[in-house]
Design a protein around this nucleic acid. Structure first.
Lengths: 114, 114
DNA sequence: AGCTTTAAGTAGACAATCTACACAATATGC
DNA sequence: GCATATTGTGTAGATTGTCTACTTAAAGCT
């Protein structure tokens, strides 16, 4: 774990929604998935994770229910709602805009090959 | 101006430093440059710009001096210090890490071709 | 009994953006 | 001479989303 970096503020929702697109999961597993998939670069702290999950649930983008994990512990499983899928698409396109705009400023000559 | 989006928190310093790499400029001009180069997607509000410039100056990454602009107004010109150049490089590489890590999570199959 | 792992959660600090103002000097129009 | 637009710098306060640090709890193993 050479270099882990703080999350970019505003991107956690997107990371969570995208993870849930692969299927329902509980908080702990979501955090681990993000961490593993990003090759340990992105680490989601529990103090960020749970408030974010509650936020997303309050907005109706994900839905929660209690169940039991593989390890036999009670866990709160989240899944995407239809509104959540729309939100995921919106946030994905917003990320595209960001990274394209940043690229334009960071290396102006290279036309942003959409 | 179809769709402008809020800045990603933590990227303004990088945008400013990169702009100053092209040569000294005053605040107003820096903001305009970022806006134009990003094709109007990124807009820097004055309430973000000036605190950021003061921040960067306080850290010794940029140096300021009063001068007169083309339009004949007094303006505070900023230029990169040697420490600022190092900081720019560091922040550029951090942005690379971010966008690569995000890409890994957002579309897992495409191996991040560095 | 005690320790580790899995899992959910809260409280409070902190940082960087935003909106909405205020201020000043120059140039232009009447 | 006076109003208005343009250029340019700045502050105050709200908001938001991370973070660190801590708490709780149950299961499994020794």
């Amino acid at each position: 774990m050479p270099d882990r970096i703080d999350l970019l503020q505003g991107t956690l929702d997107l990371l969570i929604l995208r993870t849930l697109q692969l299927g329902p999961a509980h908080g702990h597993a979501i955090a681990k998935h993000i961490q593993r998939t990003s090759e340990e670069v992105l680490q989601v702290e529990t103090g960020s994770l749970y408030p974010a999950l509650h936020r997303l649930e309050a907005q109706g983008w994900i839905h929660a229910s209690w169940a039991v994990s593989d390890k036999g512990k009670r866990a709160r499983y989240y899944r995407l709602t239809p509104a959540g899928k729309k939100q995921l698409a919106a946030q994905q396109s917003r990320w595209q805009q960001w990274s394209r705009a940043m690229a334009l400023v960071l290396n102006p000559q290279s036309g942003g090959s959409s």
